[in-house]
Design a protein around this nucleic acid. Structure first.
Length: 508
RNA sequence: GCCGCGUUGGUCAAGAGGUUAAGACGCCUCCCUUUCACGGAGGAAUCACGGGUUCGAGUCCCGUACGUGGUACCA
């Protein structure tokens, strides 16, 4: 009786994968894994005019980065292929014709121009968007309004035509949504949607029902923008395969930007990424920034996304993907849309950077460094540095600024932090300190620090007055871990060299 | 316009008739630290509005407002 859980993410390859899309993938994935089911990715490329080269590959790259791998897809294979709707084209016609034969749909011959004319002529202030529906269909060119012989002739002649669903006039269509509960529509307010286009491709409406059936989908999660067309899908299920075969629907709340629905424009406008990974539109060459490139960890990105509309009620906020799989529940998904908060997103990333061992992020940072021409020669040293500065890094990209001085002497010194209180005594202190360091018995943190403090005491200067200058000499600015720790890391020669170099600058 | 969905601090949110209405982000103050962080302790700030139902309503019902989605041979 219990069917194996099968869910699907069905993107259309028209551009970048944004936050909302990844969250839909995530909820699908979590639900599938939690129930020992399958997660399928089906490419909805029925609109050939919107095809964007590279978009499909990009989507799979994003999924791989996020660690949300499909069990079945055009890339991963599977028993229910093909997984691209364009490759399934021949499949759909017979369902459309079945609907026509049973009186649930009809052929329509109106040209785009004629449709536009109808909409324009019927448009009024009260009815700004006239529909192709029970009130207008008999005035249009279709197999309901035209004599049967003419229809047959047109069909035989190969005239361009579409198949439209014949929406019943006054029927209540309802279904139970996993998130919203009982949802009801009046059939009279939904139009006669095109099911099969003139080019023989199905529209989303037909394709989603046919493919969900053929692919044995048990639960269908999608964005709330689809809720309005759900009655079409419900009807199609009823007509074609039986309502009891229909998957359980869950319409996910929208993710909003600072001003309304989150758009890729918001990213540029407010300075945060909206796509998972960088996406360059091949036509406009416009680049939309991704979370990955901005310096996000996939762990943090996923964690943050999971909480945009869901929480387990316990107050825990940091979840690994494994924990999410076990704790997620579709019933605790919010009904209301959630506004995306970049500050909170950064907090998640910071938490994950602190939480993960340095070795886990080392490769990633190494690449970042390589791009800045910083060579990492010792992994041991590198990991130690990472551990020292982790707490100070919110984004992966912060590691450069926070640790570059461990690999090269600072290019610039924050002299303003030192000069106002600089004097000959301090200068003399550092001269002497260099000599002591030169002859130090062992280059260890405690020795370096003790020499410093003893010398300061001998010269009757407060150590605190000297530590900031020392820091500026080694780091360049007022930040970073304990200053003697840094000295012990970069080594004797380098420490002395930086102090001497800084001294000439301070004494100018 | 019509239809759908929604509405707890600035943001994410807990809450399923009786609570001083959790927690987190952000902001502010203090402590720790003679750097910056981390960490710790506090603080300001909320049930959209109006009617019901009830001994009692953030929780149930009805309106209104507002937000949001749809209204394509796009998904």
């Amino acid at each position: 009786m219990n069917k194996k859980v099968r869910v699907r993410f069905a993107p259309s390859p028209t551009g970048g994968l944004h936050l909302g899309g990844v969250r839909t993938v995530l909820y699908n994935y979590l639900f599938a894994k939690q129930n020992g089911g399958d997660f399928i990715v089906r490419i909805e490329d029925t609109d050939q005019t919107r095809f964007v080269p590279g978009a499909e590959e990009y989507i799979f790259n994003c999924l791989a980065w996020c660690g949300l791998q499909p069990d079945e897809s055009p890339l991963h294979g599977g028993e229910y292929g093909p997984y691209r709707q364009s490759e399934r084209k021949p499949l759909y016609r017979k369902y459309a014709e079945q609907l026509v034969n049973e009186g649930f749909a009809y052929y329509a011959f109106d040209t785009p121009a004629e449709l536009e004319e109808m909409r324009n002529s019927l448009k009024t202030a009260e009815n700004p968007s006239p529909q192709y529906d029970a009130t207008t269909r008999m005035g249009m060119k279709n197999s309901l309004s035209m004599p049967a012989e003419e229809v047959t002739a047109k069909l035989a002649n190969g005239d361009n035509h579409v198949v439209r669903i014949k929406m019943p006039s006054n029927e209540k269509i309802s279904f139970t949504d996993l998130i919203h509960g009982e949802v009801e529509f009046d059939s009279s307010v939904v139009d006669d949607k095109v099911l099969l286009k003139a080019d023989g491709m199905p529209t989303y409406h037909l394709a989603v029902v046919v493919d969900d059936y053929l692919m044995k989908i048990t639960h269908a999660f999608r964005g709330e923008e689809w809720l309005s067309s759900a009655p079409v899908h419900v009807l199609l299920w009823k007509y074609l395969f039986g309502i009891e075969q229909m998957p359980q629907w869950a319409h996910l709340p929208l993710i909003l930007g600072p001003s309304g629905k989150l758009s890729k424009r918001d990213g540029a406008k407010y300075g945060f990424p909206v796509f998972a990974m960088n996406w360059t539109d091949p036509k406009t060459n416009e680049l939309v920034e991704g979370f990955k490139e901005r310096g996000f960890l996939p762990e943090a990105f996923i964690n943050m996304l999971a909480f945009l509309g869901w929480n387990d009620g316990s107050g825990q906020e940091l979840f690994s993907i494994e924990e999410l799989v076990s704790k997620f529940s579709i019933g605790r998904v919010h009904k209301a849309g959630a506004k995306f908060d970049f500050e909170k997103a950064k907090w998640y990333n910071h938490e994950w950077i602190k939480k993960l061992p340095a070795s886990h992020i080392a490769e990633n940072i190494k690449e970042l460094f390589a791009a800045k021409n910083i060579a990492v020669t010792s992994d041991e040293y590198f990991i130690k540095v990472l551990d020292l500065v982790k707490d100070r890094c919110t984004l992966l990209t912060d590691f450069y600024e926070q640790s570059v001085y461990f690999f090269q002497s600072p290019q610039q010194l924050d002299t303003a932090a030192v000069l106002p209180k600089w004097n000959a005594e301090k200068s003399a202190f550092f001269e002497s300190y260099c000599e002591l360091l030169h002859n130090i018995s062992s280059w260890e943190l405690s020795f370096i620090e003790n020499e410093f403090k003893q010398l300061a005491a001998a010269k009757n200067i407060k150590p605190g007055e000297l530590q900031l200058p020392m820091r500026i000499m080694l780091v360049g600015g007022k930040f970073g871990p304990a200053v003697f720790e840094i000295a012990s890391m970069i080594g004797k020669e380098e420490t002395i060299s930086r102090i001497k170099k800084a001294l000439t600058i301070f004494n100018q």
